[in-house]
Design a protein around this nucleic acid. Sequence first.
DNA 1: GCCTATAGATGGAACGTTCCAATAAATCAA
DNA 2: TTGATTTATTGGAACGTTCCATCTATAGGC
Lengths: 349, 349
Amino acid sequence: MASRAKATILDIAREAGVSKSTVSLVLQGSGLIRPETAVKVRKAIEDVGYVYNRGAANLRKAHSNVIGMVINDLTNPFFTELAVGMERVFQSAGIVPFIANTAENPVRQEEVLKSLMEQGVAGLIVSPARGTTPGAFRRIETAGVPVVFAMRRLPESRIPVIAPDNHRGAFLATAHLIGKGHRRLAFFGGSSDLVVYHERLGGFREACATLGIAAADTLVFEGETSRKGGIACLDTAIAMAEPPTAALCFNDAVAFGAMLALRKHGLEPGADFAVVGFDDVTEAEHYMPALTSVAVDAAGLGERAAHAMLKMIQSRTTRAEDHIGAVNLVVRESCGPARPRRPGMGDAA
Amino acid sequence: MASRAKATILDIAREAGVSKSTVSLVLQGSGLIRPETAVKVRKAIEDVGYVYNRGAANLRKAHSNVIGMVINDLTNPFFTELAVGMERVFQSAGIVPFIANTAENPVRQEEVLKSLMEQGVAGLIVSPARGTTPGAFRRIETAGVPVVFAMRRLPESRIPVIAPDNHRGAFLATAHLIGKGHRRLAFFGGSSDLVVYHERLGGFREACATLGIAAADTLVFEGETSRKGGIACLDTAIAMAEPPTAALCFNDAVAFGAMLALRKHGLEPGADFAVVGFDDVTEAEHYMPALTSVAVDAAGLGERAAHAMLKMIQSRTTRAEDHIGAVNLVVRESCGPARPRRPGMGDAA
DNA sequence: GCCTATAGATGGAACGTTCCAATAAATCAA
DNA sequence: TTGATTTATTGGAACGTTCCATCTATAGGC
């Protein structure tokens, strides 16, 4: 049933009664061969159950058509949206990207990158794992393989970045909260080893400062970027002598966690405590109450990153311009009713 | 900055003053070379910025260490859990699996499989796209590459399958609904071109039949396996002259949709209409109301599939035993209070 | 001192492609 | 008819590895 030793281009040549060169030409769709010959060859290919050996070809050609997408957390719908966006453009370019997950683990990331490089990828789109060391991409850069960072950046790297405007998003969200009358605000979740964290926290702080919130009234709670982290942040916040009345969360998962915890404490998200998320995953819209969140268009950024990569490969350069994607605040129900509250402590029902 | 032509094993040899054979031996950690020589070689490797060319090596060796995981929908957390489970075991086996997404599109799947085969994968774990044609894997089978199906199976294929016990899961869920006093039941979502669909529907029907629900009182609504599909199913069901009072949903996404639609109609999930999901994604637990669902342990099945694949590769066979994973019903709030209702129409509050 | 083992290192062929240069056959211009 | 041009096809070298068979020392046994 299974033909033993796998067929090569020479087997096809023998079968079709032509030379290996002719078969090779047919394989790459050259117009140089007579149509009848091509038909004959294609039939032979079918008959012997041939499968093209791209490794052998790359040995000669030196440019592969595989692109690696390295994702830090496939479990987070935000990043799968990013991946899906990238895939969309690669697909229409006739390229099959390979996705590898690093599970937010720098060591794993190292392995993954090594493996991808050994496979001879033409390019790499990476959302780096938390705690990636500055030198992690040095070897890849010296190898001349184009890399673009998506969503996240590294502290002092020259690698092009496609990411949302985190600072502005956080500013917008915080301004919204303040506009609702809140005067004591928290920032929930995230950890300081991520550049994104500083960007978002920076926006939060700037909004507080420019809109007249005293530094003493802006509270920051680091924590896991997950539901669990959100729960923990809210629990410790609510236990304070003078608890905040609203929180900007590092991402939607944290926001969901915070809302869960609010209910646990007998408080109603929106009415008793305002929460806004970041990323606007699809779930945000369907949650109860629907989550107000900063939309970043992950899929769009993915497409953008893929296009940048394609262009880099084509023009055989390793440089490209950064792109900071527009964000916008999607107002739903998790910050209470539409009309602004009266100035004051603002936590009355 | 970037060293031009990429370094090969010969460059290392020259640098270290040894032969290419020696370098090769060092690379594969052979004990045949003198330690001091090995050190010298390893230094040269570092110095020239060498990256191993697996393609060239495979040309000679004929067994690669890449495994392809082909997923039908990366957007569905259920399948990413599966992927993460597989990854876990491959990682500890020192293998980096490449994930490819087919977006539930058989044509795309064809491309993806072709690409993976050309790359010379050692094995393939596939959750086939809806509408996959029976012959889609013939070529791969004749090439002798081991394949395992995860979660889904094809109608009449000899390829080993790792999947949950869909029939039993549906039976359990339906029995639960009937035990709650419901007498007119619906099955929401899914389409008949999926084997899973028939398995789950079969369990539903068997439970109805054996527990005394008339065929006229078991309603089936096909539909998309998404929130949108769930909304559509509920909308048409509720518009009937004699609507059902409970529904088993093809999966959790459909269940979320149905609950959303219930609220839209002013009905409260759980109290006014019972819904149970399938798959028990993490979101189910946190939903309002928390969703009663059939837990299938996607990650566990992924691990199982990965182990099966590893074993197949090791024993160079293309056959393995099917594995039907245990399921269990996780009862939460979406079917109303714990005590059984009075027999009767059962839709009174 | 000679023969045999052994440890360590090596040259060369092979793997399955691509692509250049060369060839053969057919067509055209004169 | 002849030479030039075009159209189809082809052999061979190269790509970067692995691995077998071979080679050279050095050590050991006598």
